[in-house]
Nucleic acid binder design. Sequence first.
DNA 1: AATGAAACCGCAAACGTTTGCGGTAATTTT
DNA 2: AAAATTACCGCAAACGTTTGCGGTTTCATT
Lengths: 378, 378
Amino acid sequence: MQTMGDPLAASAILAVMQLNTNVFTIFMKFSNERSKPFMSTTPATIKDIARLLGISVSTVSRALKDHPDISAETKEKVNEIARKLNYRPNALALGLKSSRSTTIGVIIPEIVHFFFSTVISGIEDAAYEAGYNVMVCQSNEMYERETIVAKALLDHRVDGVLVSIAKSSAKFDHLTLLQDNGIPLVFFDRVCSFIESDAVVVDDYKGAYMATEHLISIGCKNIVHLAAPENLLIGELRKVGYCRALEDHNMAVDPYNIYLCDTREKVEEKIHRILSRDPKPDGFFAVNDSTAIAVLQEVKKAGYRVPEDIAIVGFGDGPNTTICSPTLTTVEQNGYEIGYEATRFLLDRITKCNTGAAARKKVLTPVLVKRESTDRKV
Amino acid sequence: MQTMGDPLAASAILAVMQLNTNVFTIFMKFSNERSKPFMSTTPATIKDIARLLGISVSTVSRALKDHPDISAETKEKVNEIARKLNYRPNALALGLKSSRSTTIGVIIPEIVHFFFSTVISGIEDAAYEAGYNVMVCQSNEMYERETIVAKALLDHRVDGVLVSIAKSSAKFDHLTLLQDNGIPLVFFDRVCSFIESDAVVVDDYKGAYMATEHLISIGCKNIVHLAAPENLLIGELRKVGYCRALEDHNMAVDPYNIYLCDTREKVEEKIHRILSRDPKPDGFFAVNDSTAIAVLQEVKKAGYRVPEDIAIVGFGDGPNTTICSPTLTTVEQNGYEIGYEATRFLLDRITKCNTGAAARKKVLTPVLVKRESTDRKV
DNA sequence: AATGAAACCGCAAACGTTTGCGGTAATTTT
DNA sequence: AAAATTACCGCAAACGTTTGCGGTTTCATT
């Protein structure tokens, strides 16, 4: 058979020759195929290989994973046919049998945000390194969507879930549901205080403290903080960092200088009210970059100079911070590292099956990136 | 039993009472659980429900889907236990049985880009509306990664795949592999000319034509085009649109005015060479927004005024275009709509099983969004 | 020549579902 | 009262794998 030119035809003959039992069905298989010899429209299975070779599925299965019980000759034949048929193991069957799907789920607010998309890159890299697949689900910051995707991940029997909670999530039954079903959870960035679980976060308190202190150091006397909703821990921590920095420099914390304002839209809605307060703000610390940039644009439009009249600091260090003008001082958050480390935590839980071990927490230290929006000549 | 206060305890009793055969295993089940009555660490199955109720799995299965053969009483009991156990059907088993996973795969270059992440939003919405889940995989613009994720999607027996090819992909065996296995393909944005399949794209030619014509209309005489690699059809089409617009206005197409330059890095590398050419460029049409914005920043840095000395147009209309200064004129691409329509195409193929029908193509018309970077007083 | 041990391979159960078919009991129809 | 429905439920096979166990050969050892 090695003398034949066309390897496909060669194996077809080989296969037919070795048949003993069900020649008919095989023949049907061949005659049914249109123009694609040896390739049905449906994925090849171990059964197909076994049938073509006239051996049992057990043998094929063992041959494919190089089991010592199988002869070299058989292994060769099996692998050849498998290659020709483009055989790929059915992950559903594998998962059902082993009750492990080698897939991890991700519940993430919105991937449009640069930070979250870099987190995903870190997650994917860590997962692929370990042979795991990733299933990414957006909650779109909506509690309902979060519950839906959590259940979908449960349905698919993912081996673990990485989650950063939505702004609007106040109930967490859907997450404890996952835990109750033996699916380990690891939080990243936006953690949930009510659930005992591993977590990877940045030191939001410290980042906010540094940001505020920097504004103070360049001479700001009346610093406004644009904050996130209260149920978000990261928002709270950043607010506390802001307050503490003021206190440590003997500046009073004016509650009226703290606004719930974490999107561009809210900035456009509230900015005039904020700017018309007395004493007038000369510094802004916003809970994220896009809010900070919106402020930057609005105050410029209102005739103020940045950073001379008003200095601004954001949080996150997305690429936008270098394309606005002036460029934005911000607190760097290494999304990739957060995703990578969180996934390492999760894989650890999965492979070690140590769901019992105490919750670990990794806190990454952010760094303040100084740019033009706070670059005053002091 | 309705008189008891605790519904959990009530059903436990109910369950034990109804047992006839395997009391022992049930008892084991209870005594094994720590602090979580009625909830093992592993997901509940139909078998569990059947065992607790002393009925067969077939009955439970039918009861759960409201089959007329099952009595109202049984249905009620089954549903009650199912709810208590947080029963969720095993998607792996369902997929294996039906050879449909109600999951669609997405192969996308990089979700960091605003355009692609909006596409995903459109995909998700269309998929969820139809009860499908979405598995998003990034190729990171790498051919190897693209082949890996394609195989992973095949392994998971997704019902269909949406794909936008990586810049570096020149071979497409991994995609025909999917087709050969009966998995329908729909391309979005970056199509592959060698594979006959459905596609949803924007009219890149027209978008480029409009952009170039706009530059001409504001008085640009020497317009540079920063192009994508040649193997990307969208890049080619945009280049052709650029050339055609010049020709239609009796302006010569200078091949030296066309550069392979589609990232910020390449701009920083080549901009000085480009600007030092004679005649000096007075207009730029870049193949995407981030490239255009990089140009904008570099020419400003080099002392030129935008748009007075040099006018710039991008492609894509991401949010960056409104935060750079001056704001960027660009060609709007409705990513959400592309994703939504592509998914509709795919679901159509899946549900209708009409893999045989001719390939359909939907071309969305982009619109030119004029902003400051071309706002000359003419 | 009988025994033992390799070397190879197949049977069958299991994972969690669905579903055609058959069966029993209760109810209705003659 | 017999027959025919009707109502309700269980058996078992199937989806694609893996794997413990048992079964044949074959070959080397006494």
